[in-house]
């Protein structure tokens, strides 16, 4: 019972921790641009401000899909933290993105359509890499369960370093960071799928982003196995890497992104898989 306490606490507090991570990230980003940056709790102030706004919905299904996106993402995160089957987790995560894409296509806004289109393309870019990581996990530990990774004595990082590099390459797509933030691309499509949400319903999409942070950093944490210090180190390193990358690159277009992630990241992960399965 005791072993479940930490995951359950994490699951319940996930949106809050995600918000803190987001707030901290904004400060780090500002410092990298030599600005002062907002206070740490700014995401929550934004949250409260948004709750105060007039709620305008395009149609009820659209709003419902937005909320379901949040719920299913939280569910996927919960399963990941509880150590469930990684394939299941990845597909649940895919489902949550699919709900958002449906929401995007259900409106008549061209920017929402383009955003949904690009979100679908970015799923195409990062999902194969995640699947291969799950398969590598199976080969290395004999189980698809995330719990197997959490309890593995030898950190997975040393067994599948190339897969970790591949994960680092696709994480900017997932977290909508330069150079691969095509799905959001506020200068081009003004936020894409998020555009048509407002007020309380936008909160769902907005907070889902925070959950995504926790999700991604847990995936990174997975590579450390039972070595918690290494895990924290990996997460901190990834955090720094993501933000520095965000601050040193321009946005590429979706074709270049697909070419890059399927050409380089996927190949790296696949080579890793081959090596793992051959040895």
């Amino acid at each position: 019972m005791n072993g479940y306490l930490l995951p359950v606490l994490l699951i319940i507090l996930a949106p809050f921790i995600g918000g803190l991570v987001y707030g901290f990230e904004r400060i780090v980003k500002a410092r990298m641009q030599r600005r002062i940056g907002p206070p740490l709790l700014q995401p929550f102030y934004d949250f409260l401000k948004l709750a105060d706004k007039r709620q305008m919905i395009v149609h009820s299904a659209h709003a419902f899909l937005g909320i379901m996106h949040f719920v299913s993402l939280w569910f996927a995160l919960a399963l990941l933290l509880l150590g469930a089957d990684l394939i299941l987790v990845i597909f649940l995560h895919l489902l949550s993105s699919a709900l958002l894409i449906m929401a995007g296509f259900s409106t008549r806004s061209i920017f929402s359509h383009l955003g949904a289109n690009r979100t679908a393309l970015s799923i195409l870019a990062y999902e194969p890499v995640l699947i291969i990581i799950a398969v590598s996990l199976f080969i290395n530990t004999g189980s698809f369960d995330a719990a197997a990774a959490f309890t593995s004595e030898e950190p997975l990082l040393f067994k599948m370093p190339l897969a970790f590099v591949a994960l680092l390459l696709v994480l900017p797509i997932k977290l909508k960071k330069s150079p691969f933030d095509v799905a959001e691309a506020h200068q081009e499509i003004t936020g894409g799928v998020e555009l048509e949400f407002s007020g309380l319903f936008f909160e769902a999409v907005y907070t889902a982003k925070w959950l995504d942070y926790i999700f991604c950093y847990t995936l990174v944490f997975l590579f450390a196995g039972s070595n918690i210090l290494l895990g924290i180190g990996l997460v901190a390193g990834t955090f720094l890497y993501l933000n520095a990358l965000d601050n040193s690159t321009a946005r590429v277009n979706y074709k270049q992104m697909l070419r890059f992630s399927l050409g380089i990241a996927f190949t790296l992960a696949f080579i890793n898989l081959l090596i793992n399965s051959l040895t």
Partner: peptide
């Protein structure tokens, strides 16, 4: 690449905004 490291380096500099 330079920009990547200068971004990390900027973490240790004072902000220029007043």
């Amino acid at each position: 690449m330079n920009t990547f490291f200068s971004a990390i380096g900027n973490l240790f500099k004072e902000p220029v905004t007043t």
